[in-house]
C-alpha cells in the first residue's frame, strides 16, 4: 500500500504547478529584476546610507534633522501646502465629477484635463510665472476692471506653489474620483429617488458612503504627489522661506553640502511622513463599507 502511494506521489514539477509555479512563472523574472535594480536596491542603499553619516554616530543625521528648526520645519511647511491642496482638489473634484458623469462628451473633457499632466509641473510653473506675475494677464485684468489698485502678489510665495499644485494635481484627482463615481450603479440613485430621497439625501446616504473608500485612496495618491513637490516650490514659490519644502532640504543636503548621507536621511523622513498620513487615512478607510457598489446580482 505504501509502495503504491509512493508510485503515485506527484513529481516536483506537478507539485510546483499546483502552487501556480511553472514555466510561465519565469516571465516574472525581467520585471522582478527591474524592480529590484531600480527600486529596492536604491531604496535599501539610501536607507543604509542615512545611517552612515559623515560625522557622528548611526543616528547623527536624524539627530541633526530633528534638532534644527530650519530642517524639521520643512515637514510642517510641506504639510501646510500638500494637505490643503489635496483637500481642496477633492472638494472640487467631487461636485464636478457629479456633473460630468451625466455628460455625453466626457472624452473631450478628459483629454483637456489630461493635458496639464502631460505638460509637467515645470511648464505649468513657468506659465503661472507669466500669467500670474505683476505684468501678467491676470493682474492686468484685475487692474483694468478696477478691482485692485496695485498688482496682487500671487507668485514667489505660498499661493504660487498652491495654485501650481492645484492645477497639476486636479486632473489626476478628478479622473480618479470620476472613475469611482461612475462605478456606482445608477440604479441605486433611482431606487433612492423612488423611495423619497431628495438629491441632498441621495448624496449623503447613497453616494457619499459608497464613494468614501475611493476618495480615501484618491486622497492618498494625490497627497503623496503634492508632498513631493519640488519644481514649483522653487520656480513659483519662495524657496528660501515660506515654501522651503522638504524636498528642497534634501536637494540642498545632496547638491549644496554634498552630504548624500544627510540627503538620504531627509528622504527617509519624507517617506515616513507620507507613510504616516497614508496609513492613518487607510486605517480610517478600514472602518468604512468597502464592498461592491452595485445594487445586486445581474
Amino acid at each position: 500500500m505504501r509502495a503504491l502511494a509512493a508510485d503515485h506521489a506527484p513529481g516536483l514539477r506537478v507539485r510546483l504547478a499546483a502552487h501556480g509555479l511553472d514555466g510561465v512563472t519565469l516571465l516574472v523574472v525581467p520585471a522582478a529584476l527591474f524592480v529590484l535594480g531600480l527600486f529596492i536596491y536604491p531604496f535599501a542603499y539610501g536607507f543604509w546610507l542615512s545611517f552612515n553619516p559623515k560625522a557622528g554616530g548611526v543616528l547623527a543625521n536624524y539627530g541633526r534633522f530633528f534638532s534644527d528648526a530650519y530642517l524639521y520645519g520643512t515637514i510642517a511647511t510641506t504639510l501646510w501646502l500638500a494637505l490643503p491642496v489635496t483637500l481642496l482638489n477633492l472638494a472640487l473634484a467631487v461636485p464636478i465629477a457629479f456633473r460630468v458623469r451625466l455628460m455625453r462628451r466626457q472624452r473631450l473633457l478628459t483629454t483637456i484635463l489630461v493635458i496639464p499632466i502631460t505638460l509637467g509641473t515645470v511648464l505649468v510653473a513657468e506659465g503661472l510665472l507669466n500669467y500670474l506675475g505683476p505684468q501678467g494677464w491676470f493682474n492686468r485684468t484685475l487692474l483694468w476692471l478696477g478691482l485692485v489698485s496695485s498688482p496682487v502678489r500671487l507668485i514667489n510665495n505660498y499661493w504660487g506653489v498652491f495654485l501650481s499644485l492645484l492645477i497639476t494635481g486636479f486632473p489626476f484627482t478628478f479622473l480618479l474620483t470620476l472613475s469611482y463615481l461612475t462605478g456606482i450603479d445608477p440604479a441605486l440613485e433611482n431606487a433612492a429617488a423612488t423611495l423619497g430621497a431628495k438629491p441632498a439625501q441621495r448624496f449623503r446616504h447613497i453616494f457619499l458612503p459608497l464613494l468614501l473608500p475611493g476618495l480615501a485612496i484618491t486622497f492618498c495618491l494625490s497627497f503623496v504627489q503634492a508632498f513631493s513637490v519640488f519644481p514649483s516650490a522653487v520656480l513659483v514659490g519662495a524657496p528660501a522661506g515660506p515654501t522651503r519644502v522638504i524636498s528642497i532640504a534634501a536637494y540642498q543636503a545632496a547638491f549644496e553640502e554634498y552630504d548624500y548621507s544627510m540627503a538620504s536621511a531627509v528622504a527617509i523622513v519624507m517617506g515616513l511622513v507620507q507613510l504616516g498620513i497614508v496609513a492613518a487615512v487607510l486605517g480610517a478607510r478600514g472602518l468604512l463599507y468597502r464592498g461592491p457598489a452595485g445594487g445586486g446580482k445581474g
Binding site: 431606487a191 445594487g295 445586486g296
Partner: peptide, 8 residues
C-alpha cells in the same frame, strides 16, 4: 428593479 438596486 430588475437588478434589485439594494443599497450594498
Amino acid at each position: 428593479f430588475q437588478n434589485y438596486a439594494l443599497f450594498p
